[in-house]
Design a protein around this nucleic acid. Structure first.
Lengths: 232, 232
DNA sequence: GCACGAGAAATTGGTTATAATATCGAATAT
DNA sequence: ATATTCGATATTATAACCAATTTCTCGTGC
């Protein structure tokens, strides 16, 4: 009788095992314990989570619907591998939707928890100074941005955005592996924070546009360079 | 041994039962056989599809991830009920993403199968003239628009758009229940077709903008009126 | 030494039976 | 009339099992 130890985050209680398994597998993918292309064996996952195969299969199907997992008929599931062109597509979709999210959030700055934003910004600064591992820094930045997006109060938009961030995770991670870009990153986050502090919608959008421009001019060339090396 | 009769669309073969069940249930929802709020009993669905409960549960989870189905822990699943404000949210997201899709499609008009577009337009005109049932007309219009969107060739964008169309289906259906709006609808579709024929990107976007404006000025007041009556 | 098959092992996809648990409704008791 | 208990029902999860197929392995032949 396997001892079920799912509790990654201690307090959250799930109504059913299956949701816990979904979060568990998604976490393993997002934390890099499972890499793109890795096979996802049902009974192996079932053992590690201490459950039977049924909830695992349901979980994999749900992750498939999210695009994080790919099923190959009769050959099992693997972690989705996102191509560079897919990443570019996803990024442009994100730009369109994050613009919407910012506009909605900026309709009422009172909904933006500025204190939390400040806290996260300080945590990010500390993490950059410490050279914390890329996954942790990436997670903090994600929380920072979604604190702004969540102020829009739009459930469907947040669901889609969250999914797109999941999908583009492997490329975002790459961005955090260059210590020399640290100051650039911090300046960008600070501009977002400042715009919220000033309650200035136009400044908020400009801060985001600057981030996207950096991504085009700095990250994408690096990604493409890496891609060319990989093919050679 | 129950006789498995899933084949709604005759030719498509599925690698697994589960995908067939997903499509089957989604179809039932989209065709109105299952209405928002309806309970989805596992064994009942299993019987109607001639399969065991396992594939049904997997299918429901997948539909949950798509937002079409809601799970109430220990109380089963129901067809999602979309509120008016959710519909407005979804519609604005759609506008942003369909703008993207049109831009991408208009980068190379050769990818738009103009003959197919023409065919669909004629089918739609015939269906309007016949006063065909609203579901069928809605389906044809969906195919018409997605023929344009698909020319973008962006898988993730199409996946998200398809999902958003599914979610807003119940409100779109309402739009087709007013015969007096028929000419207005047809004029809109014709503008889209003409813009593709003329290979004019700006005209294409303007055609869509006109459609969205109609929705704001014609459909939304009707929806809100209906909503107020429902509450009274 | 390496490619190629045949057979074995493993994995998936699906069924069925079983049990635990939570919900809902009805009957009963207060 | 209201609260409680009890039972029917449905969900959630486990386990055992089977068929189909893929993958692995090992030996053989070139």
């Amino acid at each position: 009788m396997p001892t079920s130890v799912i509790s990654s985050s201690p307090i959250i209680t799930y109504g059913n095992v299956q949701d816990a398994v979904v979060d568990g597998i998604r976490d393993m993918i997002l934390k890099g314990q499972l890499k793109p292309g890795d096979r996802l064996r049902q009974d192996e996952l079932a053992r590690t989570f201490g459950v039977s195969t049924m909830p695992v299969r349901e979980a994999l199907r749900q992750l498939q619907a999210e695009g994080l997992v790919v099923f190959h008929p009769r050959r099992g599931a693997t972690v989705a591998r996102i191509s560079v062109s897919e990443y570019e597509e996803i990024y442009l979709i994100r730009e369109a939707l994050e613009t919407l999210a910012c506009r909605w959030a900026a309709e009422d700055f009172d909904r933006i928890p500025i204190e939390r934003l400040k806290c996260l910004l300080q945590e990010i600064e500390a993490a950059e100074a410490n050279q914390d591992n890329a996954h942790r820094r990436m997670q903090l930045v994600r929380e920072f941005f979604f604190t702004v997006f969540e102020a829009s109060g739009k459930e469907h938009l947040l669901r889609i955005l969250s999914n797109l961030w999941d999908l583009s995770q492997q490329y975002r991670l790459y961005f955090y592996s260059f210590p020399e870009l640290g100051p650039k990153r911090l300046a960008n986050y600070h501009n977002v924070y400042q715009a919220c502090l000033d309650r200035n919608p136009e400044a908020l959008l400009n801060a985001f546009r600057a981030i996207w421009a950096d991504r085009d001019q700095i990250l994408m060339p690096l990604v493409r360079e890496k891609e060319n090396k990989r093919q050679a």
